[in-house]
Amino acid sequence: MPTPDDAHLYEEVLVSPMYLAGSNGTGDAGFAPVAHWPHHYLDEGPCQLVVTSPDQRIRIGWFGDDFELWKITAATDAVATPRWTATFNHVTPAEIVAGLTTALAHDYAEADAYDGNGCFLANPSYRWADAVRPLTDAGWTLDGGAQRDTVEIVAPDGQAGVLIDNRLSGWDDETVTLWAGPPGWSTRAEAVFTERTPSHLIAATAAVMADSAPVIRERHQIDRRMEHLVTLSPVAPAAETSETLGSRAPTPLDVRRTAVTQAVHRATRAPRTAADLRVMAAQSRTTDAVHGRPSTFAPASATPPISASAPRRSR
C-alpha cells in the first residue's frame, strides 16, 4: 500500500533550469518530432530501436542499456558512411535531443519539397560562433581557462557549457561537446558532435539548453546531488486548486499559471494515440509520412580565449 512518502516522490514538479533536470526515463520527447518516420525495432544487439527518415539517410538510434543512450547520424544515402554523428548520454534530458530531431525533421521536409539534398548534410560554418549563438545571445560567456585552441562557453550559473575543440582533427573526431551538471555518472549530461555536423543543427540543440522554460519530472527522478542546483515547483498545487480556487473566482495570475502548466505538459508528453500521430503527420511538410504508435523506452540505469569572430581551423 503506497505511503504518504511514496506519493511525494511521485509528485510531478516543474524543474528549472531544464538542462539539469536529467532523464525522465523515456525517450518520448526526443522521438516525438519524428514519430511519423519508420520505426525499426531490433531484438539483437545494444541498439533497441532505430527511427529513420523514409529514405534512411537520417538514423536515430536508441541504446537503452548504454551510457551513450542516443546515436544520431546522417549520410548521403542509405548505405553510405555517416557524414556526421551526434551522441547524447543517459543523463541528457530528452527535450534537448528533441532540439536536434525537430531540426532534422524540418530539414528533411524541406529537402523532400525542394532539392532532395537536405540542409542536414550541409558543411558546417567556418566560424565556431555560429553553432553556439543561441547560448551567447542568452548571456553565456567565454571561460578564460580553456586550453589553447579550444573555446569553452559557460552558463551564468556555471552549471552548463559548451566546449569547442578547434585543434586540427579528422572528419570523424568529436569537436563540440554540450554539457550540463557536475562531473559524475549520474549527474553530467553530455551531447557530443563530430567535425562535419552542420552548425545550424548544433545551434538548434543549444537553443533548447538556452531556453528558460521548465520541464516536468517526478521528484524521484531528480538525483539527490542535483537537488540544490535546481528549482522545483509543483505542477498542480492541489490544495490551492481544490480549496482556495473553489471559493473564489480565478485571478489573471491563476489563469496564467494554469496555462503555463498545461503548455509544459503538452511539450513534455509525446503523442499517445493514433489520432495524435495523424495530427503530427498533417502538420509535417513531409509528404511520405508513415503513421505509427510512439513507444516508451526506459534505460537500464540509468590558453588565452579565442575571439568569437575567429574562423575555425581548416581541416
Rank of each mutant, 00 (worst) to 15 (best):
R224A: 13
V97H: 02
M1F: 15
S301C: 10
Q56K: 14
F120M: 12
R313D: 14
L245M: 10
H36G: 14
R257G: 08
N89D: 09
T287M: 05
D130T: 14
W185L: 14
H39S: 06
A282Q: 03
R148F: 09
P250I: 02
A207L: 05
A21L: 00
Y126D: 15
E243I: 15
S16I: 05
D276R: 00
V215F: 01
C47Q: 13
E95C: 04
L245V: 05
L168Q: 13
P33H: 03
A146G: 06
R256C: 06
D157I: 03
R256P: 06
P82Q: 02
L163K: 03
D115E: 08
T194K: 02
V15R: 00
R256G: 08
A75L: 00
G30S: 04
N89G: 03
V91F: 01
W84Y: 03
S186G: 04
I60A: 04
V15P: 03
D211Q: 04
R167P: 04
A270N: 01
A249F: 10
G246M: 05
L163D: 09
R59L: 07
T258V: 10
T268S: 10
T81D: 07
S284E: 02
A236D: 15
L168M: 12
P237D: 13
R148G: 13
P214V: 11
H265L: 11
H39M: 05
P38H: 00
A111K: 00
V235R: 14
W171L: 07
S212R: 13
C119H: 14
